[in-house]
């Protein structure tokens, strides 16, 4: 668990981060969003002390980060940046092994961990271990960057625009992959992004920042339905609101008893995807099946629309 308490960074008279407090629960993903210059990256960099706070503190599992030597602190925290910062003079395997080597793991342990991570990210060790970063595609570089950050099994992963350099198709895949790995490992993630879709897609809670201040820290749905300030409303996009809301909800929540013709939707699909299918096929209702394929009911356009309405 990360507790950020009254964190402030001033350069001269200007406060880049101004008295920000929030808490990220164990095993969840928090996204920090805002326009550029809002202080997102500085906030993130204060967590691993790449930037020293002017005031306030950060607690990781109750321990003040100031009480831990800088380097030791960073060994425990995964860090992924835009562009990844892979070391061009080191192979993929050596890149991933960076922190374990700093920690003095023995050689066999490191080799095993590298192989495990390459497998986890779907990179064949035989093919990729010996490659240099410049021989990789953008998507592969991104995966190596995340694998490197996770190498020493950190409980916390900090990510600064980790998908910013990817094209939309690969970006979406990389986000899904990150989400599934995060769920599997139970890593706590703090992610900085200016892409609202990314934040809604990945985050359990979203922190909205503007000019150094934290405007709202809430679950995605709450951000949509109860924006704290006009700026938040504008940032989440008022025109997109219903669709964003629908994409946060699963078919499970809107399923009704009954049957219908056609290929069934899954309970795990988002309402956004379900509505999309209904419109495209020109149907009012479609059947719904559970994960094993057994029919559990049906879903209708009107029920979906009701879920996308503003809640007073």
């Amino acid at each position: 668990m990360i507790e950020i308490e009254h964190l402030t960074k001033r350069y001269g008279a200007a406060a880049i981060v101004d008295d920000v407090s929030f808490r990220v629960e164990e095993g969840t993903v928090a996204a920090v969003v805002g326009t550029s210059g809002a202080g997102k990256s500085t906030l993130l960099r204060m967590i691993n002390r790449l930037v020293e706070p002017s005031a306030g503190r950060v607690l990781i599992d109750g321990q003040d980060t100031m009480a831990i030597p800088e380097d030791a602190l960073r060994h425990r925290i995964g860090y992924v940046i835009q562009g990844y910062g892979l070391f061009p003079h080191r192979t993929v395997a050596e890149n991933i092994a960076t922190v374990p080597r700093l920690l003095g793991w023995d050689r066999r342990q490191i080799a095993a961990r590298v192989e495990e991570l390459l497998d986890l990210f779907g990179l064949d060790p035989a093919e990729f271990a010996k490659k240099f970063p410049h021989q990789l595609s953008g998507g592969e570089q991104q995966r190596v960057g995340v694998a490197r950050a996770l190498a020493a099994r950190p409980a916390l992963l900090l990510m600064d625009e980790p998908f910013g350099a990817l094209d939309p198709v690969i970006r979406h895949k990389a986000q899904d992959e990150l989400l599934s790995i995060q769920r599997r490992l139970g890593t706590t993630v703090v992610l900085v992004t200016h892409d609202m879709n990314e934040a809604f897609h990945l985050a359990d809670r979203i922190a909205v920042m503007n000019q150094g201040r934290l405007l709202q820290y809430a679950a995605p749905a709450e951000l949509l339905t109860r924006p704290a300030e006009a700026f938040v409303e504008q940032l989440v996009g008022s025109a997109e609101r219903p669709f964003r809301l629908l994409s946060l909800m699963r078919v499970q929540e809107a399923v009704e008893p009954g049957t219908a013709e056609g290929e069934p939707l899954s309970v795990a699909d988002t309402l956004h995807d379900a509505l999309s299918r209904l419109i495209w096929l020109g149907r009012e209702v479609l059947p719904v099946a559970d994960a094993s394929g057994a029919p559990v009911g049906r879903i209708s356009v009107s029920r979906i629309l009701a879920h996308g309405r503003a809640r007073a």
């Binding site: 350069y11 880049i16 990256s41």
Partner: peptide, 16 residues
Amino acid sequence: MNTILQTTVPGMHSSR
């Protein structure tokens, strides 16, 4: 953006 701010800002010393 914030990497720029990471390095020391010139003139900071003179304000002391």
